Simulated assay, not measured.
Amino acid sequence: MKKALVLGASGGIGYALVRELADRGVEVVAFSRGKEKLHALYQHQTKVTIIPGDALVEKDVIAAADGVDVIFHAVSFPYPEWEEKHPLCIEMVVHAAKKHQAKIALVDNIYAYGRQSHVEVNEETKKEPHTKKGKIRLAMENRLKGSGVPSLIVHLPDLYGPNAENTMLHETLKNVVQHKTANFVGDLKVAREFIFTFDAAKAMVELALREDSYNQNWNIPSAHPITGEEIIDILRKEAGYTKSIRTVSKTMIRFIGIFQPFMREMVEMMYLTEDPVILSGKKYEAIIGPVPRTPYSEGIQKTLHWMQQKMQGNFYRV
């Protein structure tokens, strides 16, 4: 892979992918609608070409994909827009890949697996999504598999890391960094997975560099499942956080959802805070090697530092 396109380059995982690709000497096209944020993030990156555009406009995506070997699909949309925009976006990506004979690497989550009784979910586990958003993600996966385009589908747990602002853990960290009372979404005693975005990007780029990893699903787990209580302990010990942390329950989100469409859409995904899907990394480890696993204490510290730098107006330097 000599050149890659990252769609959604202004988001958390998109940012980590651009950085990882550039660090490996790959020429990168960073694409998203936010021109100002793209410049803030990448204006000092010599391997990165900034192209503002709309992932739902075919000519924009096709133009950005000119000459690339792999298109990384890291575009996210607000929950209320998923049903309308995700199917359209995947079509734009497929058309661009066919036009330029490029491969596709899809950043996926765990929604398509639905409720699972397995201790760890592997790539052969049957996907039976019971939520609207899980069904949308499975439809995206099936569209890629039926497209004839060589594709990677990479399942990741909840994300956290520099620039990863539309995540559950960010809801906690955004107030921690300002030393205000923070919220934690879900039961503090339930162990869940949160993957550091730079670990996810390392694993995904490694897969994208290998010809024999395409036309497969890959699960990339986190360092290990962790409870909210353990995360709070890290914040106390490593970040010196002394304020209280409120627990946000499903009942609270359902009530807020009466007034806010985003929170209303979030209710159906709260099952993941009660009965988490835990990913197995055995396939990756057997074929590729060790899964990148940044300790939570280190990952959280790096994320908080990035957030502090952003508040000071120089977040692109981190």
Score class of each variant (00 low, 15 high):
T181P: 07
P87I: 01
A102T: 05
P157F: 07
P129L: 01
L156F: 15
K126A: 13
E123V: 00
K99P: 08
A105S: 13
L144Y: 04
N183I: 07
S151F: 11
H86G: 05
A112T: 02
E81G: 01
E120G: 00
K145G: 07
K135L: 11
V107A: 09
T172D: 04
L138Q: 09
G134M: 03
P162Q: 09
N183A: 10
E120T: 01
A182T: 12
E123C: 00
V177G: 03
E124D: 11
H73I: 04
P157R: 04
A112N: 03
L144V: 00
V75L: 11
K133R: 14
P129A: 02
K132W: 14
R143N: 11
I104E: 09
H86E: 14
R143L: 12
P150Q: 12
G186P: 06
R143C: 08
H179F: 14
N109G: 12
P80E: 06
Q101M: 10
I110E: 07
E141S: 06
A102E: 06
V119P: 08
M140L: 13
G161V: 09
T131Y: 06
E83T: 07
A74V: 12
S151H: 14
P80R: 05
F72H: 09
A105F: 08
Y160Q: 08
G148K: 04
M168N: 13
K127Y: 05
W82G: 11
E83M: 06
H130L: 13
A97G: 06
H73R: 07
S117K: 10
G146Y: 09
R115L: 12
W82K: 09
F77A: 12
N109K: 01
V149I: 15
